[in-house]
């Protein structure tokens, strides 16, 4: 089951890389958030109440609160599509495939012998993380960059699942809270960028530079 979820997660990554409609990327990242947050159910040996609570909160934040917030930000913005990305959609999907191959290669190099460890977890995490960074670099619209950041956080979350249970749940709530507040702040700034520049194209943001 966990393998199926991880495969779907990576599939979402490829869909995100190939999609030009901003709204559909938000749906995709919401679904990816859902997949990533239910994964601990199938990986952990012991399901305690604190684990369930943690999964529920992650689910709430990653696949409901953040996407809904981004959806409302999108509604106020007139631009619905990403036009002229820095790297094209077909090229992006192709690069995504290459990233997957490289991640599997790296995953084989690091041989982790941890009890509950799923061998596919590490490559999937690295793929999601790298593709997130790639989205931030290769797209011009500010909202896609926020999605890239979210995808990156999902990848790190997957990598974090490799660690055995360390009882750091209280602090993991802190990570989630930071993520939530961070995306909300980005949304507010994004809204203001849209108001001031009539667009959310980050190439317009170039007045501050040296040389």
């Amino acid at each position: 089951m966990s393998n199926l979820i991880l495969t779907l997660t990576v599939l979402m990554v490829l869909f995100c890389l190939g999609s030009s409609r901003l709204l559909s990327i938000i749906y995709l990242i919401a679904f990816q958030g859902f997949l990533v947050s239910v994964l601990p159910f199938f990986i952990n040996d012991k399901i305690t109440i604190s684990v369930i609570l943690f999964i529920l909160v992650t689910l709430l934040i990653k696949s409901f609160l953040i996407p809904i917030f981004l959806y409302f930000v999108m509604k106020r913005i007139t631009i619905k599509r990403e036009i002229e990305p820095i790297i094209g959609y077909n090229g992006s999907v192709f690069l995504g495939l290459i990233i997957i191959i490289i991640s599997i290669f790296i995953g084989n190099k690091f041989n982790f012998h941890i009890n509950h460890h799923n061998t596919f977890l590490f490559p999937a995490g690295i793929t999601t993380l790298t593709s997130g960074i790639f989205l931030i670099i290769a797209r011009k619209k500010a909202i896609t960059q926020v999605i890239g950041y979210l995808m990156m956080e999902n990848g790190i979350y997957l990598l974090g699942l490799i660690l055995s249970n360390h009882n750091l749940n209280i602090i993991e709530f802190g990570i989630l809270l930071d993520l939530l507040v961070g995306v909300m702040l980005m949304g507010i700034v994004l809204h203001n960028i849209n108001k001031t520049f009539d667009d959310i194209d980050t190439t317009l943001l170039k007045s501050l530079r040296d040389l």
Binding site: I136, A142, Q145, Y149, G182, L185, M186, V189, L190, N192, I193, T196, F197, T202, L205, K206, S207, L208
Partner: peptide, 14 residues
């Protein structure tokens, strides 16, 4: 909330 400060904030957060 000027254009420049918007740009600086966006870069800073991201």
């Amino acid at each position: 909330k000027s254009k420049k400060s918007l740009e600086a904030t966006w870069k800073y957060i991201l």
